[in-house]
Structure formats: structure tokens, C-alpha cells
Amino acid sequence: MKKNLALIIAPVKDVLIVLSIILFVFSGCKKDRPIDKETRYREIAWNYLSANAKTTVITPLQNAVITFETRDGVDVAAVMFNTTQDALLGPIFVYISIKDNKVLGIGARF
């Protein structure tokens, strides 16, 4: 009986070892993580700014504030960049359509 049991356990043990090796090898094969939506909106907004506007921005790109709102029936992401001219004009707001990731425009600065 013990010999029969040993004959059954040995192949199962080998299969478990092979499966463990396969899992270990393929666990390192991950797809690149997709950029999260907020990072994408920040990059789209930054790329939309003019070179002159970029020189006044004091907010690091990763710290730009994003708010989600509805404007004229369209869901938008509003990305806010603080600038050296905030006291005079206010921050820069870039509005991006959530549906198709296209810039709708820049908010008025007064």
C-alpha cells in the first residue's frame, strides 16, 4: 500500500514543481500599467498650453488639481495650473472632454 501511494505522490509532486516554475516565470511578464486617467488629463492639458503660459506655471505637473464637472451637457475634466500671475489673472484652467480626451478650451482669466 505504501509503495502504491509513493507511486501516486511522486508524479503529483513533479507536476506541482513544474507548475510552480511556470507561475514564477510568467508572473514577471506583466503588461505595462496603463496611465491612469488623471495623469492622462494632466499631460493633455500641459501639452495644450503655449510656451509662454508654461513659463508662468508654478504647479508641478503631477500636482495639478483636477475637477470633474458638466459644462453645457458635456462631462469635462478641468485641470488647474497655478501661475506666477494668479494674483492678477487667476490660475489657468484647461477643459478636457472626458468622452474623447480632446481639449475643449482654456478658461477665461481676468
Rank of each mutant, 00 (worst) to 15 (best):
5 L>F: 09
9 I>Y: 05
10 A>G: 03
13 K>T: 12
14 D>T: 08
14 D>H: 06
15 V>H: 03
17 I>C: 05
17 I>W: 03
17 I>H: 01
17 I>T: 09
20 S>P: 00
21 I>E: 01
22 I>T: 07
22 I>G: 05
22 I>D: 05
25 V>H: 01
25 V>L: 15
26 F>W: 08
27 S>A: 13
28 G>W: 08
30 K>A: 12
30 K>Y: 04
31 K>D: 12
32 D>H: 06
33 R>V: 14
36 D>V: 09
36 D>L: 08
38 E>Q: 10
42 R>M: 11
44 I>E: 02
47 N>E: 12
47 N>T: 06
48 Y>F: 15
48 Y>V: 06
49 L>G: 03
50 S>R: 07
51 A>L: 13
53 A>N: 07
53 A>K: 09
54 K>W: 05
57 V>W: 04
59 T>K: 04
65 V>N: 10
65 V>E: 14
66 I>D: 00
66 I>R: 04
68 F>D: 07
69 E>S: 14
71 R>I: 15
72 D>F: 08
73 G>W: 02
73 G>L: 02
76 V>E: 01
78 A>I: 15
81 F>Q: 01
82 N>H: 09
82 N>L: 12
87 A>H: 03
87 A>Y: 04
89 L>M: 13
89 L>S: 07
89 L>A: 09
89 L>E: 05
90 G>M: 10
90 G>A: 11
93 F>L: 14
96 I>T: 02
103 V>M: 10
103 V>I: 12
103 V>F: 05
104 L>C: 00
106 I>H: 01
106 I>L: 14
107 G>S: 12
108 A>R: 11
108 A>D: 09
109 R>S: 06
110 F>R: 09
